[in-house]
Design a protein around this nucleic acid. Sequence first.
RNA 1: UCCCCGAUGGUGUAAUGGUAACACACCGGUUUUUGGUGCCGUUAUUCCAGGUUCGAGUCCUGGUCGGGGAACCA
Length: 560
Amino acid sequence: MSIKSETTDGTKERPLNFIEQKIEADIASGKHGGRVHTRFPPEPNGHLHIGHAKAICVSFGLAHKYGGVTNLRFDDTNPEKESTEYVDAIRRDVSWLGFTWEGGEFYTSDYFDQLYGFACQLIQSGKAYVDDQSSEEMAAQKGAPGRPGKNSPHRSRSPEENLELFKKMKAGEFQEGTRVLRAKIDMAHDNMLMRDPLIYRIKYASHHRTGDDWVIYPMYDFAHGQSDSIEKITHSLCSLEFENHRPLYDWFIEALNIYPTEQTEFARLNLSYTLMSKRKLLKLVEEGVVDGWDDPRMPTISGLRRRGYTPQSIRTFADRIGVAKRNNEIDVSLLEWALRDDLNRIAPRVMGVLNPIKLVVLNYPEGQKEQLVTQNNPEDPSAGSRELPFGRELWMEADDFKVDVNKKWFRLAPGRVVRLKSAYIVEYVNHIEDDSGKVTEVHVNYVKNSKSGQDVSGIKAKGTLHWVSCADAVDAEVRLYDRLFSESAPEAKGDFMDCLNPGSLEIKTGCKLEPSLSAAKIGTVYQFTRLGYFTVDPKYSEPSGLVFNRAVTLKDGWKG
RNA sequence: UCCCCGAUGGUGUAAUGGUAACACACCGGUUUUUGGUGCCGUUAUUCCAGGUUCGAGUCCUGGUCGGGGAACCA
């Protein structure tokens, strides 16, 4: 595995989480011959999101840490919901995150024959039976928490009869919904899942891989643990919601006498202002609230990628949130922090003006132009430098000029002096307002001997502004994103559709970027000096009409 | 009503019977040609009640609160 799981301070030791402690104890005791083999088992019925990213980092990361490998297994036991489109997307997302499944790529459907055999084995040992009742009848017999259920009238069929019926189920001799195979456990068990759970059902549906070969399909509980066992997974890691399934998982392993994989559960990720349910995310897509699974506001891996998130930032995030059994709600600002932490080190700095107004340097000769040199990344000298054209007419940020200001204002204002980044110090002369009082143009004089790197003017400018030369500027559209929901926990109260943030997307046109950005590449994330991190939108951007997405702002320490 | 899991600063995560720590956030200072970054510092934590112990966040008992648990879903 060629990923770096270290964080910025990668050399620091992090205390072991409870799963690592367990793995180390297992290795020490020689369990599984000291092997560590994990798996990531998504159902290909939707796109992966940041919650899955945590699970991926845990399962792949742990195997990697302990010298083991990981399998990617598509859990495809419900043909009605699954498709190869999702398989491809999941594969792409996992590898984009930086992980390779050198344990192999598998499908639960690979094991349909074996699973069928397991079912027959259970029947023969009297541990499973065919039930002819309707789902309503079975539900009524199930009892309730605290109240035992009743045995099915078909519970005592002989193994021979059960086997015969099960074979007929497989042969397509029964209608969908008329018969199921159930494990024979205990209808009075405290754990509802142990009350003779369904393990096979009839479904006349085409499967994305096995086509019409099968008309019976195993249930999750009868497929998942056995698949782990078949692959000799040592540590089967999953989320807390499956804790109640573990006794059943173990029951099947024991009843079938197969490889003893052990399941360990940990808390899934919850992120503030974010939805983590595939079903609800799908609704956002279907209702056109967003422009697809990869909308930059979506918490999907593809959305984060399009937004400008880096694989490293997501891995760092996963590392920082830790692994435990406690329910949590992580503040999205930690995810943003992880992105800034990565991008600050690697993002090329460029200049772009989002809300341009004219800045005219009165004492700079008309028609004159010069190339200034500026660093690509002050955090990384090896990133080199580039040239920046400067002239008499520039674009500046509207927010960087204000008429009435107080002492804390560092930017341009009447009577003030500022430095233009990598260029000259300029002094306010006057400004022009339109009829509504909006400032449309600011006029300054530049200080000739204050050129960046050769400044002998002795003038100290408190503020530094970004700017772009009018004659050389590249026009672009820039999309600013904010959280999709205005509620910290959109799923908590009422309908999540009612707390959509109407300002989650702001489209700015007529933005002015420095000329080097006309060659901006998809996949590179740039820091627009003083503004934030931006990347080319792969869906809407064209050579003739650049479109940038803002991944995240810079931290704003100004408390004006 | 029954079963399972959990509870440590604002948010997460450690401390495995022996000084409650780390990160993020916040606040303040400092550096800075990005009000970014870096550096320094401040504030703030063991759900409750009993018990065991020289000593309890940790062990025991009881409670409270939160999450999960009935699908021909995974």
